[in-house]
Amino acid sequence: MRNLLRFLYKYYFFLLFLILEVIAVSMGIQYNLYQRARFVSVTENISAFFNESISSFSDYFHLVETNRKLSLENTHLKNQLQRVYRSDDLFFFGEKDTLHRQKYFFTSARVINNSVNRMHNYLTLDKGRAQGVRPEMGVVCPEGIVGITAGVTKNFSSVISLLNTNFHVSAKLKKNDYFGTLSWDGQDYRRALLHDIPYHVPIEEGDTVVTSGFSAVFPEGTLIGIVEKAEVKNGNFYTATIKLTTDFKHLVYVDVISNLKKKEQKKLENYD
């Protein structure tokens, strides 16, 4: 017994280090193996507060660019409105309309924190539970997809960016509807990889890649990027490098998408 105590006393520095290190490493491994991004930590609120003050300041530097983007999108939407609703005023419908089966509802939000230089990048938005944001909603911007909401507090939400090695989304080629999985390899914030496209599918530089809509998170056909190069890796599948259309370094305003029919679809598919 005394020997044991003496041993413990002699090597306590190493033993304590070992215990603490095991705790830390197992936290890290758990996070890497299973997607544990659904934590909403206490710090979320604190850091969101700081980030909001920083971003309200830095927003001024992007005013010109933001205005240009907004006016572009306005024009685009006006055009769409003309095409769709011109025939009859009666066709204008709102969120709760059961006749027209509106499936997606968009909420505008401002990005108050964003990073592109980590392996697991996150964004923070200034909308939360009180504004109707829930976990696992898609986030898009006018140029393409951005990510999926993870943690939601009362007034803020954190978004797993597409630039997160844990992020996967089902994507397809716009021209022939063959689908695969899109993920990020952590190399370049402007490029992502599209896996699992069978090798017999004609895929060329310049093909458009859009979301497949299978996951019920993003509407079908939301823009992701353009094929930059495609090569057959490990056997029967293409791995294509996709040039992302979203510029993750210049995100200011984004839209959070709630799928009004998601519960129904998931119930049928037995996920929930």
Binding site: F13, F14, F17, L20, E21, I23, A24, V25, S26, M27, G28, I29, Q30, Y31, R36, A37, F39, S41, V42, T43, S47, R118, H120, Y122, S158
Partner: peptide, 20 residues
């Protein structure tokens, strides 16, 4: 640092090793 950067264990293990 892990809490603020959403990294869970990565900063902790690196800092511990450094301290050791």
């Amino acid at each position: 640092m892990d809490l603020f950067e959403h990294t869970y264990g990565i900063h902790t293990s690196a800092t511990l090793l450094m301290a050791w």
